[in-house]
């Protein structure tokens, strides 16, 4: 448990990795703002915790981002942790990918994360401490056939992470990325048959990752145990890229 409750904002917290991360932080004693577009889904999680706040947040909409951070400021005047988890994934071979699909992924995965980090740093730099955790993907590290647009957006998240880490280090704000491998979520449920078997065969731990595997890593990076770690990309993939 944390001694004095710290404040965390997790985007895309209604499902999958975001929901698991929110629960993990709540269990660890953080005050957690669960950001997402569907209030009902967020409430399903936050209703079980006194230290949870549901927050309407569409990271593709700047006015929604501003309103969400204003709410955090209004209630606590501080933010210790931002987990930039909200993301969209579209599959498509290069020749079959329309520009609006690429725009959608970059708007949410890159621009949305950037703008959230931008506002978070203002709340964090006042205390001269904070941790930003960007959820990238193993596809951003090494790419994947049929996911060039998604891979590009997640590679951009890594570049952003490293640049922000350098720029924000003097302000006491750490920025790291997680690059999950094949994690069992709604996003990966559509990967079936031969593609799924092939993915499993590439994992020497012989299992797909769980959302809790990622949540644990996020909690670690947010903690004082990781106080000298910044600008890193932690790959959570059961050996896929080892």
């Amino acid at each position: 448990m944390v001694d004095t409750p710290k404040i965390a904002l997790i985007t895309g917290a209604s499902r999958g990795i975001g929901a698991a991360t929110a629960r993990r932080f709540l269990d660890a004693g953080y005050v957690v703002f669960l950001g997402g577009r569907n209030l009902e889904e967020l409430e399903d999680i936050s209703a079980a915790y006194e230290n949870a706040h549901s927050l309407i947040l569409d990271v593709s909409d700047l006015s929604s981002i501003k309103a969400a951070f204003m709410e955090v400021r209004k209630q606590y005047r501080a933010l210790d942790v931002l987990v930039n988890n909200a993301g969209v994934m579209h599959a498509g071979m290069i020749a079959m990918t329309k520009s609006d699909i690429i725009d959608d992924m970059f708007d949410t995965n890159v621009r949305g994360s950037y703008l959230c980090a931008q506002l978070a740093t203002r709340l964090m730099s006042a205390k001269h401490s904070g941790s930003i955790i960007n959820i990238s993907s193993i596809m951003g590290v090494q790419g994947a056939v049929g996911y060039s647009g998604y891979s590009a957006s997640k590679a951009a998240v890594i570049g952003m992470t490293k640049a922000m880490a350098k720029e924000l280090a003097p302000s006491g704000v750490r920025v790291n990325a997680l690059a999950p491998g094949f994690i069992e979520t709604d996003l990966t449920a559509s990967i079936t048959g031969e593609a799924r078997d092939k993915a499993l065969a590439s994992i020497r731990m012989n299992r797909f990752g769980t959302t809790d595997d990622v949540a644990s890593a996020a909690l670690f990076l947010a903690s004082d145990e990781a106080s000298y770690i910044t600008g890193q990309v932690l790959q959570i993939d059961g050996s896929m890229t080892a």
Partner: peptide
């Protein structure tokens, strides 16, 4: 530039506003 960020944070805190970029 680092202090500028701290200044923005301080002004937002003191006057309870959120500045546009």
């Amino acid at each position: 530039s680092v202090a500028h960020m701290a200044l923005v944070a301080e002004l937002e805190d003191v006057f309870d506003i959120m500045l546009d970029t």
